[in-house]
Amino acid sequence: MGSFFIIVILLLALIVSAVVCVQISVLVKAGIALAVTSAILSVIMFRLGAALAAAFELSVCAGLITVIFISAVSMTKIMSKEELAEKRRERNKRFASLPAILIVVFAAALFFFWPHIDATLPFAASAQGDTVQNILWNKRQVDLIGQAVIMLIGVYGVMVFFRESDKE
């Protein structure tokens, strides 16, 4: 039961960091909040026994994506303090209703799921004796080919876009 409460606390932290991520007005801080969200998600994955996916999430989503994001933000112009204050006011006004909407959605989801929830202790179903390596290399090679093609397309796309911007 203690493990269940830890998972619930981590899920709450995940939701709070996602809300902070969309509500905060400074883009760099939003990027850092996104990294925190990814880090919390990777802790949840690790606790559920998905260690490999957790390592990927932590290194790629919390690391690489944050670096790309902050580099992109650093290439844009800095706002003046007045502009920033005005943007912050406008953003706070636009996102003021988000917590209320979340509470309503939470209540609706709880109302919908309550009759279907049983009070059994949440243990994992027995693992079906397969490894990630076996699935990736022997059963889902098409996924691997797809990933390689997507990565090549990504590299090509980034080269094209950055070359065009260099010419300008």
């Binding site: 998905a50 996916a53 079906q128 990630v132 990736l136």
Partner: peptide, 12 residues
């Protein structure tokens, strides 16, 4: 109980 398959999808 199919965590390995789920991890493969998550990596993709």
């Amino acid at each position: 109980g199919r965590m390995a398959a789920a991890q493969a999808y998550v990596i993709t």
